[in-house]
Amino acid sequence: EETVVIALYDYQTNDPQELALRRNEEYCLLDSSEIHWWRVQDRNGHEGYVPSSYLVEKS
């Protein structure tokens, strides 16, 4: 079962390993094994790492 997370803030990045976030957008959580950086996928299928503190699990 996939976990959906919501971005609390915008996040901009130039790092190809990371993914930009848009506030209030939903993302699919792929990997939360790292404490500070979670791997997520956006609705267009793009994947990357984002700061975990910018996300909240959708209830």
Rank of each mutant, 00 (worst) to 15 (best):
I35W: 06
D10K: 02
S33D: 08
W38H: 08
E25F: 06
S53C: 06
L30H: 03
L21D: 00
S52R: 14
E57C: 08
N44I: 08
Y49K: 15
L8C: 08
Y27I: 00
E25P: 00
V56G: 07
V56Q: 12
E34V: 12
L19D: 00
D42M: 00
H46F: 07
R43N: 12
E2N: 06
W37C: 10
S32C: 10
S59L: 05
N44L: 11
D42T: 05
Y27H: 01
L19M: 15
V40F: 00
V40N: 00
S32L: 04
Y49N: 13
I6N: 03
Y27W: 00
S59A: 13
K58E: 05
G48S: 02
K58D: 05
V40G: 00
Y11S: 04
E26F: 05
Q41T: 11
G45C: 05
T3N: 13
H36A: 12
Y11P: 00
D15R: 14
V4P: 07
K58Q: 09
L21P: 02
D31Y: 02
H36Q: 13
L29C: 08
Y9G: 09
P16Q: 10
L8Y: 03
Y11T: 04
E1N: 05
L8G: 03
A7L: 01
R22K: 15
S32T: 08
T3L: 11
A20N: 14
P16R: 07
E1Y: 12
L8V: 08
R43I: 06
K58L: 07
D10T: 04
S32V: 06
E47R: 08
E18T: 07
E1P: 03
L30A: 05
C28P: 03
S32P: 07
E1I: 14
P51M: 03
S33A: 11
E25D: 15
S32M: 08
V56R: 13
I35F: 09
L55N: 02
D15Q: 15
W37T: 15
R22W: 10
S33V: 05
I35P: 14
Y27D: 00
V50W: 02
Q12H: 12
L8T: 09
L19F: 09
H36P: 05
Y54M: 10
R39M: 09
E1H: 01
R43G: 12
E26N: 04
I35S: 13
D15N: 15
S32I: 03
S33Y: 03
A20K: 15
V4W: 10
L19V: 11
H46Y: 09
D15P: 13
V4E: 06
D31F: 01
R43Q: 11
S52L: 01
T13G: 13
E47P: 03
A20W: 15
E18R: 14
R23A: 09
Y27R: 01
D31A: 06
V5Q: 04
